[in-house]
């Protein structure tokens, strides 16, 4: 067959492949495009509009952002969200890593512990929040009873105190999330070759040295991924706080997502709330990019 005769046939085949490909993707794509892709793009545009649930949309440039930076609620929420992240990220990471290293040994009953430690992660949030509120109950809750028993006369008021509400939320969230990241670390530990440990043992390395010079470097890709996931999820925090403290007492645990929800859905200020959500998006994006950069620099 000559070359020119082949071309239309190839094109026809490629066109039919396009059809077939799209036909597979379309059922999912329709829902995805209408309710994820379009909203994602729209939220960017919305932040430049003056649009409340009762008014017609009007282009206002950066007005929403200007209003935002003069808004006290926004700054409080931003500060609180950062506070939550600073507590939640390192504590969850340390707990997940610690449990993963413990569970990676050949001990009896490891399967049971892995199951038990993972379970909080898939326990419903409402149940988690309710139980922790009771455990941390200031007067008669078991946590404060325990603290008094070990000699702390004036234990914290936890969710009833503006100072201690955030630590209370962080404790509950670390408890809930550690199992998930532990599984990621356990998967990471499997990728470190056993020969490295054997060689180190022959050279007389101590347990700490093996951890410091083999385990930690070997886990670097996992830690990188865990850090990104943890940071992003910290900035998105919403449900746990909504159920545990509703942002209170006062504004002690008010976070960015709650501001978006209250302004956008409760008050119907679509434009303004989208400006706040842009900030959330940019923060998450920036953290991801910075961590990717650092990771790259470490590798070279």
């Amino acid at each position: 067959m000559s070359a020119p005769a082949q071309a239309p046939a190839t094109r026809r085949r490629s066109r039919s492949r396009t059809w077939i490909g799209w036909s597979f993707i379309l059922p999912n794509f329709l829902g995805f495009a209408a309710l994820t892709l379009i909203p994602v793009i729209a939220s960017l545009a919305l932040s430049f509009l003056d649009w409340d649930s009762y008014s017609t949309p009007r282009w206002v440039g950066l007005d929403n952002f200007e209003r935002m930076i003069h808004n006290d609620n926004f700054w409080t929420a931003l500060r609180n969200t950062a506070y939550y992240a600073v507590g939640h990220v390192p504590l969850t990471l340390a707990a997940a890593l610690g449990f993963a290293v413990l569970l990676n040994q050949k001990l009896k009953g490891v399967r049971f512990f892995r199951t038990a430690l993972f379970f909080p992660y898939i326990t419903s949030l409402v149940a988690v929040a309710v139980v922790w509120n009771m455990l941390l109950s200031p007067d008669l809750g078991p946590v404060n009873q325990f603290l008094r028993a070990i000699g702390i006369d004036n234990p914290p008021g936890w969710t009833t105190s503006t100072t201690w509400a955030m630590p209370a939320v962080i404790v509950a969230s670390v408890w809930r999330d550690l199992g998930y990241y532990m599984i990621l670390y356990l998967a990471g530990l499997q990728t470190i070759p056993a020969e490295l440990y054997e060689a180190a043992e022959v050279d007389g390395a101590t347990g700490w040295q093996r951890f410091r010079y083999i385990t930690l470097p070997g886990l670097r890709p996992t830690t990188f991924f865990v850090l990104i996931m943890l940071t992003i999820s910290s900035f998105k925090v919403f449900d746990l706080i909504q159920v545990m403290t509703e942002g209170g007492p006062g504004r002690a645990t008010l976070v960015l997502s709650q501001v978006i929800y209250r302004e956008g859905i409760v008050q119907g200020r679509f434009g303004y709330s989208s400006a706040v959500s842009m900030v959330l998006f940019v923060i998450v994006l920036t953290i991801t990019i910075v961590q990717f950069r650092l990771q790259k620099r470490n590798e070279t």
Partner: peptide, 15 residues
């Protein structure tokens, strides 16, 4: 879109 936090587009979704 997986990288975009859901809270960032929940308002347009709601609209």
């Amino acid at each position: 879109t997986i990288a975009v936090p859901w809270q960032a587009y929940m308002v347009p979704q709601y609209v």
